[in-house]
């Protein structure tokens, strides 16, 4: 009986073996890419599974010294930042009255955002392309990609923020109002600072989604304004013979998202789980 209680829910050798298989399958492709970047094409052709011998650094250094790479990184960063700021700002502003005011159209208004979850960008992509490039003249610009991305990030932002704002204690805001503060002042000075944790969560989600986006940038951005995913995809078709170079470029492009994820792991996880529960 005692033995069973000890074994319960713990790992035997079989469990660790399974865990090892999972780790290998998960990280294998990523590590293959990272190590492949340290090899020459000749090494890769001779023995695709081996370790670099000798270690070749030129693939990575040539990516870092290419101005195109830095341009892509700058574009990705700028677009993701604009998307995040616009989505979070517009989102928290919309979520606040939905959480705090009593008015007739409150639930229908909230429903607009909930239904927005059901409109994938893909459905609207061709008209968006025409709207942004022809009507607004924002083709090949950061804003041209960031604004539609922010709009499509709004539903999930509002859906996560509303219950969070509603759960904040009302007393602080009421006291401030008694002291003569306006609603708008209360919003900026009390509600927004108090909801920082939730704002960071939705901000990280918006940032990562924008950073990884492909479809909309593919249609809207060319040449100098391309983002990292577009750069990686184009590089891999243009220099398909240079496997080691492609692997090095791809590996470097992975790093920002991975670092952001490791730094913000808790927030991303709770955000996703919140989105699922909401």
């Amino acid at each position: 009986m005692a033995r069973r209680a000890n074994a319960y829910g713990r790992g035997g050798p079989l469990v660790y073996l399974m865990a090892l298989v999972v780790v290998a399958a998960t990280l294998g492709p990523v590590l293959y890419g990272a190590l492949g970047g340290f090899r020459s094409n000749a090494q890769l052709a001779r023995d695709p599974a081996g370790l670099p011998d000798p270690w070749v650094f030129s693939n990575y250094t040539s990516v870092f010294s290419s101005s195109a790479f830095w341009q892509y990184t700058l574009n990705s960063t700028a677009i993701a930042l604009i998307t995040t700021v616009v989505a979070v700002l517009a989102g928290v502003m919309a979520a606040y009255p939905l959480a705090r005011y009593q008015f007739k159209l409150r639930e229908p208004l909230f429903l607009v955002f909930v239904l927005g979850l059901l409109f994938p960008a893909a459905v609207a992509i061709i008209p968006l392309f025409i709207l942004v490039t022809q009507d607004l003249g924002l083709g090949d610009t950061w804003w041209g990609v960031a604004l539609p991305q922010a709009a499509f990030a709004l539903p999930v932002t509002v859906v996560i923020l509303r219950p969070f704002l509603a759960a904040l204690p009302k007393e602080l805001e009421e006291a401030a109002m008694l002291d003569g503060a306006t609603r708008v002042g209360v919003f900026w000075r009390i509600a927004v600072p108090l909801s920082m944790p939730a704002l960071v969560t939705v901000g990280v989600l918006a940032f990562v989604t924008s950073w990884n986006a492909y479809l909309l940038p593919l249609l809207l951005l060319r040449d100098e304004t391309r983002t990292l995913p577009l750069g990686v995809a184009d590089f891999s078709t243009q220099y398909s013979a240079d496997t080691a170079g492609v692997l090095a470029f791809t590996t470097i492009a992975m790093i920002p998202a991975l670092v952001l994820f490791l730094a913000m792991q808790g927030r991303i996880v709770s955000g996703l789980q919140g989105a699922v529960k909401g």
């Binding site: 865990a19 999972v22 780790v23 998960t26 990280l27 492709p29 990523v30 293959y32 890419g33 492949g36 990562v208 950073w211 990884n212 986006a213 492909y214 990292l228 995913p229 577009l230 990686v232 995809a233 891999s236 496997t243 492609v246 692997l247 791809t250 492009a253 992975m254 998202a257 991975l258 994820f261 490791l262 792991q265 991303i268 996880v269």
Partner: peptide
Amino acid sequence: LRTIVFVPYVLAEVIAGVVWFQL
């Protein structure tokens, strides 16, 4: 282990695709 399992999800679909294309 939990962190590792979640790594592929964080990568851009494009970047994961390019690596797998090479594999």
